[in-house]
Design a protein around this nucleic acid. Sequence first.
DNA 1: TGTACATCAGTGAACGCGCGTTCACTGATGTAC
DNA 2: TGTACATCAGTGAACGCGCGTTCACTGATGTAC
Lengths: 202, 202
Amino acid sequence: MLGAMPRTRNPKGAGQRLRGELLAAAVALLGEHRSIEAVTLRAVAAAAGVSPTAVYRHFADRDELLRQAIAWCWDRFDRALSVPDTGDPEADFGAQGQAYLAFAATEPGIYRVLFSHRAPAVADDHQPGAPVLAKLVDRVGALLARRGDARDPRFVAFQVWTWIHGIADLQGSHPAVGPMAPALLRQLALALDLAGPVSRRR
Amino acid sequence: MLGAMPRTRNPKGAGQRLRGELLAAAVALLGEHRSIEAVTLRAVAAAAGVSPTAVYRHFADRDELLRQAIAWCWDRFDRALSVPDTGDPEADFGAQGQAYLAFAATEPGIYRVLFSHRAPAVADDHQPGAPVLAKLVDRVGALLARRGDARDPRFVAFQVWTWIHGIADLQGSHPAVGPMAPALLRQLALALDLAGPVSRRR
DNA sequence: TGTACATCAGTGAACGCGCGTTCACTGATGTAC
DNA sequence: TGTACATCAGTGAACGCGCGTTCACTGATGTAC
């Protein structure tokens, strides 16, 4: 890929340019290998068309390089999930679900890496996925309020999240799930009484 | 662990004993590292208290050792899912769901490894998880029949599977999901009309 | 019963390789005079 | 305008390490005579 062309050295003030190229290369390799450990500093450098030692001008070590690459992935995921508010909570919820599954379908390796972390014993706020989850809780809260549904938004949000995560994760590894994903998403909203006629639950 | 004690050499006819010990060690390491690539032949040998070369008496190479270790994991998972048929499909379904989540909770690393494979372009029957899925389709079929529910058992089984996989996977990485798992499982059956009063769906 | 020997479980040294990291360096370029 | 120099992007050789795999071997033990 990038390593193929000889790559012209950056001009004097533009040393930061390589930093971005290294991060982009690391993210690409994370997606390809679907794993953090399999991404080597030397491979990232080679993909950016640069010698391994050049990496140390921008990152303290391999660990920092990969930590920042993963942070960049979270950022991309978070941005992919930012669907505009149209004032129709039901439609917005569906759009966000589609955006979630679309990201996981387009970047299955990266999606897997994002959720491959071991459970750290920290508060929910420090979890890397916290902004994503918060976004979901808000959306579900707005939707329940609009529908006059008295269920706990947090619990319902976890129902939505666990289910959509299962669809997202399996569509990347089980061939039958991918084509089913849109139907599964539609039925998810119905089964959880988040779309269609307001039901008995209050 | 095993490597600590000096280990007495197996008697003449019992060369196969080491084979089992190596597989057990490999499975343990797979669970610890939550990844296939991170498990080295040398580490497996050391855990079994044996020199690296001894592995080659039982497996052609590292690849075969790990392939067989993973097959053993599938077998364990499949056996964990074999809950007895009591004649009450509703209760059996709940028991199997609990068994599924219990396995993933007890062996989160192994569960993750089992579902970490890239999607191979083969028929469903050759998928490693095929027996598990087949078991689920059967159970769901029996349950729908008993409840006089005309939905497609295969589709409902995929709804169940994606959701339960999401719960199982996230309980191993997100601290808030674990304690919620039993409640999520109960509500799963209700939301999908697989428990409680038979609803409008036919 | 005693002994020679084939069998068999497992060892240990060695290989080439890719890894992360260090260190001293090169050479183009903007800037000060 | 010309030139010396400091700055800065990036290199290349070298290190110690753990990896998978090979090869020739060791030494205990069951068995045949």
